[in-house]
Computed example of a mutant assay.
Amino acid sequence: MKNLKYINIPDFVNNNGKATTIKLSYQLFGKALHTAPIILLNHALTGNACVVGDQGWWNDLIGDNKCIDTLHYTVLAFNIPGNGYDDLEENLIHNYKEFTARNIAEIFAKGLQHLLINKLFAIIGGSVGGGIAWELAVLKPDLAEHIIPIATDWKVTDWIIANCHIQDAILNNSSQPLKDARMHAMTLYRTPESLTKKFSRSKDSQPLFEVQSWLNYHGNQLDSRFHLPAYKLMNQILKTIDITRGRLSFKEVASVIKGHVHIITINSDLFFKAEENWETYIDLKSVKQNVTIGEIKSLHGHDAFLIEFDQLSRLLNPIFEIKPVPNHSKFETVLKKCV
């Protein structure tokens, strides 16, 4: 079933100090574990561990001979516990407000420990998955050679907290919570310009505009495949991204990260604003040298990291390109003859 493997984590203590047993599921792609460099990929809010294959949500980026080449890397993807991907009621989390993004990073760290992984080539994640990447990088400063947060930041702003608050209200008060919350979220993930270009006020049937039908479609799709407790939890995880909570300043906290931080932002993102990402880059660059930033140019806003694969690949290629191993045999043969 979905090729899921499980790790049992007993007595995990959540943000409210309550101990619970966590069943952490995961999938592996590419080379066998411990035979190649390992990439940890964190999924987005309504995503899951299925990143490659028939239902793979990052097939354009990951696969044989693609940007992240599964002929050369091992790709590990955890399901955020409680995301409902395994369709098992007992693995859903109903006390969702007791969990934070940092808790998820702590759970992932325990999963890596169980798998005997103490070094990663890269941690990569988009949106909430990128926020968890930030949290994990601070929790385990020596873990990854590369940290790649995409369309995210080390903290959520008041704007995101406000919209997560609205999402939580919809999820708890609407008669069709998943559909309504998803329609609201879709308007945040795109831009006015993106919707204008896509629909131009066209109507597909009276009295609906195409944009209304599009929103209805996405709301219905999520309603058919997602679980209400899972959406509540994921919204809570998004709202709690903040690597400085209970700690020191951003510069002091983030400066301990040993790996190269590659920030990828989107110029039109209305959710995690590009300006915030550039400010993060400037602040971190003042205390840490191995920091870079790249920007995707797009009309499509936050969702551009799931749309603009050509641009994203160009930004990621320098990190994941396979460098050929020098062939010393000819040199060694010549050297022996000289000797």
Rank of each mutant, 00 (worst) to 15 (best):
K239W: 11
M186I: 08
I147F: 00
A137Y: 08
D153N: 15
D158L: 11
L136P: 10
D168S: 15
L233V: 07
P177F: 14
A151S: 14
I166K: 11
N216I: 04
M234Q: 14
Q206M: 11
K232Q: 15
P229F: 04
I161E: 12
Q176Y: 15
K197V: 01
W154G: 00
I237T: 01
M183L: 05
T244Q: 11
K203H: 03
M183Q: 09
S200D: 08
N172T: 15
K179H: 11
R190D: 02
C164P: 04
L222A: 03
H227R: 14
N235R: 13
A181N: 14
H218W: 13
A144C: 02
T187G: 02
S194H: 13
L171F: 13
T191I: 12
L228G: 04
K197R: 14
E145A: 15
A169C: 10
L139Q: 06
Y217S: 01
T157G: 09
N220D: 12
L208D: 13
I170H: 04
D142V: 03
F199N: 03
E145H: 15
S202I: 01
K239F: 03
H165L: 12
A144V: 00
D142F: 08
W214G: 02
P141A: 09
T157A: 03
W214P: 03
D204W: 13
D142Q: 09
N172G: 03
S205T: 08
L233Q: 12
F226N: 08
K197P: 00
P177Q: 14
Q167H: 12
F226K: 13
P149M: 07
P141K: 11
E145L: 15
S175W: 05
D168K: 15
I160F: 06
F226D: 06
H146K: 15
Y189P: 08
D158W: 09
K197T: 03
K239R: 13
G219A: 01
I150F: 10
K203P: 00
L228R: 06
R190Y: 04
